[in-house]
Amino acid sequence: MITLRKTGSFFVGGRRVSVAGQTPYQVTLSSTETREYDPNGTYWIEAAYVQYFLQAAPRYEVPLVLMHGGGLTGAMWEDTPDGRPGWLQLLLEAGVSVYVVDNIERGRAGFCALDGVWPDRPLSRSDEEAAQIYRFDYAGHRFPSEAMPGLSAQTVPRWPSTRGLQQQALIEVVKRIGPCALLGFSQGGGLVCGAAGIASEARDLVRACVALEPHGVPASFEGDLAGKPALMVFGDFIEQSAHWRALADHADASIAAWNAAGGQAERLDLPALGIRGNTHMMMMDTNSEQVFKVVLDWLGPRIASAG
Rank of each mutant, 00 (worst) to 15 (best):
V294I: 07
L92H: 08
A219P: 05
I104Q: 00
A242F: 03
S200W: 03
S18H: 13
G263Q: 07
V173E: 13
G274W: 08
T3E: 09
T32H: 01
E36H: 05
A257I: 05
W77V: 00
C112Q: 08
G71S: 12
Q240D: 15
H215V: 00
A20I: 01
K228N: 04
G150E: 00
W298P: 02
V101I: 11
Y99E: 03
V217T: 12
S186T: 11
S220E: 03
Y52C: 10
Q51L: 08
H250I: 14
A113E: 01
V19Q: 06
D249Y: 11
D120V: 05
T286M: 12
A260P: 07
G14K: 07
K293E: 07
S18Q: 14
G70M: 12
R84Q: 12
A181E: 15
K175S: 14
D269T: 05
M232V: 15
A130K: 07
M1S: 07
H68P: 04
L29N: 09
V19F: 05
P214H: 08
L4N: 06
L123K: 13
S97A: 08
I171L: 11
E201I: 12
G262P: 09
Q187K: 07
D224W: 01
D115M: 08
Y99L: 10
L92P: 01
Q51W: 10
F136K: 08
G307E: 01
P24F: 05
E93W: 02
R125E: 06
K228Y: 03
F292A: 12
P218A: 04
V96W: 06
G8T: 04
Y37D: 04
Q290I: 05
V50S: 01
G197N: 09
T162R: 13
E213V: 03
L183A: 07
F111E: 02
R302M: 10
Q22I: 00
G263D: 05
R59T: 02
Q167F: 09
L123I: 15
T155V: 11
A153K: 15
Q187Y: 12
L191V: 06
F136N: 10
G107T: 01
